[in-house]
């Protein structure tokens, strides 16, 4: 939340924003590297990686199809459009 406030006051200052953007990318990479590090050291996760991948795929299928269905209703009934 402090970040949103800071960002609001920094709106015009595009240079700072660009720097913040770059640092964000760096921070994300660092964090995922760290997560990967502890995952690699964890045998239980390594051994069940295929199972986790399959679960991930099912959850993705559920969330994508669910949100597409509901948005279709909004599209047809609220936006008043029909797909061709």
């Amino acid at each position: 939340m402090a970040g949103i406030l800071a960002g609001f006051f920094l709106r015009g200052k595009s240079k700072i924003i660009i720097i913040a953007d770059r640092v964000t990318t760096g921070a994300i990479c660092l964090l995922l590297f760290l997560i990967g590090l502890s995952v690699g050291g964890n045998e239980i996760i390594i051994n069940s990686f295929a199972k986790i991948g399959a679960q991930a795929l099912v959850l993705t299928a559920g969330s994508v199809s669910g949100s597409v269905m509901i948005s279709y209703f909004v599209y047809v009934y609220v936006f008043g459009r029909r797909s061709k």
Binding site: M1, A2, G3, I4, L5, A6, G7, F8, F9, L10, R11, I17, A20, D21, V23, T24, A27, I28, L30, L31, L34, I35
Partner: peptide, 19 residues
């Protein structure tokens, strides 16, 4: 280490949205 990195990241994401 990851907690510090996470706090930094959340702050930066906030700047991105606010700006």
């Amino acid at each position: 280490l990851s907690i510090y990195a996470l706090n930094l990241l959340l702050f930066l994401v906030g700047i991105g949205i606010g700006s």
